[in-house]
Design a protein around this nucleic acid. Sequence first.
DNA 1: CGTTCCCTTGACACCGATCAACTCTGGTGG
DNA 2: CCACCAGAGTTGATCGGTGTCAAGGGAACG
Lengths: 249, 249
Amino acid sequence: MATLRDMTEVENPLVTKLGGFAVLSEQDRLAVVHASRIVRSVGAHQDIISDGDRPDHVHLILAGWAARYKILPDGERQITAFLIPGDFCDLHVTILKQMDHGIGALTAVSVAEISRREMNQLCDDRPGLLRAMWWATLVDEGVLREWIVNIGRRDSYARIAHLMCELLVRMQNVGLADDGGFQLPLTQEHLADALGLTPVHVNRVLQRLKADKLIELGGRTLTILDPGGLRRAAGFDPSYLHGNKRTDR
Amino acid sequence: MATLRDMTEVENPLVTKLGGFAVLSEQDRLAVVHASRIVRSVGAHQDIISDGDRPDHVHLILAGWAARYKILPDGERQITAFLIPGDFCDLHVTILKQMDHGIGALTAVSVAEISRREMNQLCDDRPGLLRAMWWATLVDEGVLREWIVNIGRRDSYARIAHLMCELLVRMQNVGLADDGGFQLPLTQEHLADALGLTPVHVNRVLQRLKADKLIELGGRTLTILDPGGLRRAAGFDPSYLHGNKRTDR
DNA sequence: CGTTCCCTTGACACCGATCAACTCTGGTGG
DNA sequence: CCACCAGAGTTGATCGGTGTCAAGGGAACG
């Protein structure tokens, strides 16, 4: 029978994600799990970190969805990233004076809080982990660039399709999705704020994606009916996610 | 009379940029200059690095303008970053298998090529530099996020104004601009590809910015006539650039 | 059983795209 | 020195994708 400890190890999404990139030793895995032991729960619609904060520890999402966002003077919101289990909120923000954006919980979220000191030690002691976390950081940067491309140059139909393709791969990389789909707890307003559209228009485009038999979306679950068709509609090329062993062909 | 060597030291834009963030020792400065000794010239419209490359050394822009870009299946281009003197093209790409985007020279460009090994040594020997380069990396990430906000939520007028505000600060940070303006060698098509607009529309908006006496733009030089007005029009908040001592109030 | 999100729908407005000239400028070669 | 040419900027007419506004419907939850 699995002990609670075993289960925590198995389910740590960061271990899953990094393990898809590099071979981690048993000690690497244990070190990550150990570092994630201090957990804070954040309710939906609460900030995990606010604009202007200077956190003294690093936050790692263990469960639930969050979003990086900025608020404009006129009150409009732009989401710059969706954070899912295994994602760091602020891996290196201690170098800067303060956060230049907020991170809000979209659902109930569990975050691990890892002290600066422990983080440094982790990187010093386990170069394999350091390298793997570097990789994760660079992938995050690639995602940012792809979002610029998505918002700047794709029409609303391809844009929404592209986001879904990306989220599918990322959810697979942490073991939270199979080929058929995953839990997507976002409202149409969240999608709109991430994609530079209005909720009304997102609604209409989602209906077209459903009518075209590319997806099903209801309750809080997204089903990908036609992965190839969705990728084609999106012009999705996953190379910017830099190959997880699990999801690469 | 200044020797060539002296001039190189004084003018190295990375030294200027990092010096705006942290106090660098004379040795730090010399180390940067020494590392930048191998220079390659790239003609306008040439790629400095192409999509799919796996460079074995790091590229640092010493003079001229370049752009990160991605080409979509339908041939459309999206620029995801403008690179100016003092900017790294690919600071950590050696961790990844290959580039997921290209970097093209917009003007004639001088790039320093710094070997992976030398880069590592630099960071190991000079923790002050390591920290300063971390800072530069985090600022680059902040810029990416701000571009998402810019394209996603600002109309074309504020969008173009915002880019100009950003470029002004960044050019000031490397000593290539005063309060009044700077050399801007971009075509209207470059601006369009960066901002998710068409060249025709960029043209019309530029005319409005001129008519409103916010800027002058002709030849290859941008003059900011009304910095306050431009910032207001853009909704520009420079905090995402994380404070250079030179340009902070 | 009511309240509160969230989703949905329709009519209409408008920003920015598209298409197709035309002009200007700087560089090049005769 | 001038004629040409290519690349960049400019202009006008028109189109269409997405935004806006306003109202209604439905499901979850106390």
